[in-house]
Amino acid sequence: MTEKTTTGPHPTAPRQALLTRGADAETCADPSSVMTLLGESDGTGGFTSYRSAFAEGTVGAPAHFHTRATELFFVLGGALRVLVGEEVTVLGEGDFLAVPPHTPHAFAAAPGAGADVLFVFTPGLGRFDYLRLLGRVLRGEADPKEIAESAERFDNHYVDSPVWRTALEGAV
């Protein structure tokens, strides 16, 4: 399968279609979720896509932002509590959220619920390696400083969010 795209009168190089069969997808697990790595392509116009299943009461990602990537969320089932900027809301099954670059955000399973979420980043920037690293750190197999050292490579920048801390404490 190939796809040929054009921009104006000049065609761009053909891109290969990507198909990942569910049975063949790599999975990564950490204490908060099981991630199914669906596909990624680096470069301009690239993407990363994975599915995460969060158990009830688990926290997904602390407050962070991306400088180059837009992060897309589609809730396949359950409910996901999210921080976007300074606002906390709950996404339910069928809800879609697009978080543009430079926007602080965070997510966790909503209180009393698990969540099944499809994530897409564009551009992708080889984020599967970040997810693998995150899993190793959370399992105690790698040093947490590796995450901080990889911030530019994976376009993942952690920030402090009093609003998110309060939400996780159950006050929001």
Rank of each mutant, 00 (worst) to 15 (best):
M1K: 12
T2S: 15
T2H: 14
T5Q: 14
T6A: 15
G8H: 03
H10P: 02
H10E: 14
H10I: 15
H10K: 13
P11Q: 09
A13M: 12
P14Q: 00
P14R: 10
P14L: 06
A17E: 11
T20S: 15
T20K: 09
R21V: 08
R21D: 14
D24C: 03
A25S: 10
A25R: 07
E26L: 10
A29L: 03
P31G: 06
S33F: 05
V34W: 03
L37K: 05
L38H: 13
L38T: 06
G39D: 12
G39W: 06
T44K: 11
G45I: 14
G45N: 09
G45F: 11
G46A: 10
G46M: 06
G46N: 04
F47E: 05
F47G: 01
T48W: 02
Y50H: 09
Y50R: 01
S52C: 11
F54L: 12
A55P: 00
G57S: 02
G57D: 06
T58D: 00
V59I: 12
V59L: 12
A61C: 02
P62M: 07
F65V: 00
H66G: 02
H66W: 11
T67G: 08
T67E: 14
T67Y: 08
R68F: 00
A69I: 02
E71D: 12
L72Q: 08
A79V: 08
A79C: 05
L80K: 13
V82P: 06
E86L: 03
E87Y: 02
T89P: 01
V90T: 08
V90I: 12
V90F: 05
G92A: 11
G92Q: 13
G92F: 08
G94V: 05
D95P: 05
L97W: 05
A98Y: 03
V99S: 06
P100E: 10
P101M: 08
A106D: 03
F107M: 05
F107L: 10
P111R: 15
G112Q: 09
A113S: 15
G114W: 10
G114C: 05
A115K: 00
D116N: 01
V117D: 06
L118P: 02
L118F: 01
L118M: 11
F119E: 01
V120R: 01
V120Y: 01
V120L: 04
T122N: 09
T122G: 13
G124C: 03
R127Q: 09
R127N: 06
F128E: 12
D129T: 00
L131V: 13
L131R: 01
R132C: 02
L133F: 04
G135T: 06
G135M: 09
G135V: 05
L138H: 13
R139M: 08
R139G: 09
G140E: 04
A142V: 03
A142W: 08
P144C: 07
P144V: 07
P144I: 06
I147D: 07
I147C: 10
E149D: 14
E149Q: 12
E149S: 09
E152S: 00
R153E: 11
F154G: 05
N156I: 05
N156L: 08
Y158F: 13
D160E: 15
D160N: 12
P162R: 07
V163P: 02
T166S: 14
T166F: 00
A167T: 02
E169I: 00
E169G: 11
G170L: 07
A171S: 09
V172S: 13
V172P: 03
